[in-house]
């Protein structure tokens, strides 16, 4: 079954992230793919994440398929104008890529080519509309195409954004623009996430809660201070502290597993998205502890 079919069947899905490397040596990335194969339902292939130049997402999506993983093509609006985006989407479609995650993309000032000209000819909401158009046989200018795409298109949302309401307004616009599924920024407070889900459940879209494993109390504090839309509650920071240096990572994995289990048991959302950031090996362990394997 495809990711779309699994998600629509009502099964609790798991996606994880695979980050393309900088350079042509893809041994480690392929190892990650092999670890994830058969365990997760789809793999997000990031698009020059944090505006750091790496292998393009589309090529790595193809490699993922060759290694038995269903890819979700992450597509940002930072580096391509509307012609480039549409052309890449058509290319992705003929390669057999079925899922696309539409994002605006981190600003070039976050990355390693700070002098680059940011494109942002369109943004996430408009990109979703473009995908919807291509799925219906029309390009953005309304020209009829010979053969249409059949993408399952998704978007991102930050359930703990501050302030929240403008973020929710944008969420609604993304739904209206055709988003079928959402993957969220990392969440750490299930009660707050439930509040967000009350809003999201007004629409018939699927929501996958995002997870970033906490490796230490220091990392939790770093995320709180530096990463927009992430709020690690003090109780979790205390739990990591109490575990001590040796056991902090293990405790972080337990926290993630515990949260995933709760989401599934209480039927709070439709699945989870684990952003392992270099610890792809640990994804199956977390899934096992969450009772998903």
């Amino acid at each position: 079954m495809s990711f779309r079919e699994i998600l629509n069947s009502g099964k609790f899905v798991v996606t994880a992230e695979v980050g393309p490397p900088k350079g042509t040596d893809i041994k480690e990335m392929i190892h990650h793919m092999e670890v994830l194969k058969g365990k997760i339902d789809a793999a997000n292939i990031t698009d020059n994440q944090s505006a750091v130049m790496r292998i393009c997402s589309m090529a790595v999506c193809k490699i993922a398929m060759d290694h038995g993983l269903e890819p979700i093509l992450q597509m940002t609006c930072r580096d391509r104008n509307r012609i480039g985006l549409q052309s890449d989407l058509l290319g992705a479609s003929i390669l057999g890529i079925q899922n696309v995650l539409c994002m605006t993309g981190d600003h070039v000032s976050a990355g390693d080519h700070k002098g680059a000209k940011p494109v942002y000819d369109v943004e996430s909401v408009q990109l979703l509309k473009i995908v919807d158009g291509l799925n219906n046989g029309k390009d953005m200018s309304g020209n009829e195409m010979k053969g249409s795409t059949n993408f399952f298109q998704g978007a991102v949302v930050t359930p703990e954004a501050n302030p929240l309401e403008p973020q929710l307004i944008k969420f609604d616009k993304k739904v209206k623009a055709g988003a079928k599924f959402f993957q969220t920024q990392a969440i750490y407070d299930i009660d707050k996430f439930k509040e967000f889900m009350k809003h999201a459940r007004k629409f018939s879209v699927k929501v996958l809660a995002g997870f970033v494993v906490l490796k230490s109390a220091g990392m939790a504090n770093f995320l709180n201070n530096n990463v927009p839309g992430i709020r690690v509650p003090q109780t979790l920071i205390d739990e990591l502290k109490a575990a001590g240096k040796e056991k902090a990572l293990d405790t972080g994995m337990n926290i993630t597993a515990r949260h995933i289990k709760q989401l599934k048991e209480e039927n709070i959302c439709d699945g989870v998205h684990i952003m392992a950031i270099g610890m792809e090996d640990k994804v199956p362990v977390i899934m096992e502890r969450a009772g998903l394997l």
Binding site: C77, R78, T104, G105, D106, H107, P118, Y120, E123, S124, V125, Q126, V156, V157, T158, A161, P166, Q167, I169, K170, K173, Q185, P228, G229
Partner: peptide
């Protein structure tokens, strides 16, 4: 980013 439809996740 010249976004026309609401804040990005970076806010």
């Amino acid at each position: 980013k010249g976004i026309l439809n609401g804040p990005c996740g970076g806010c």
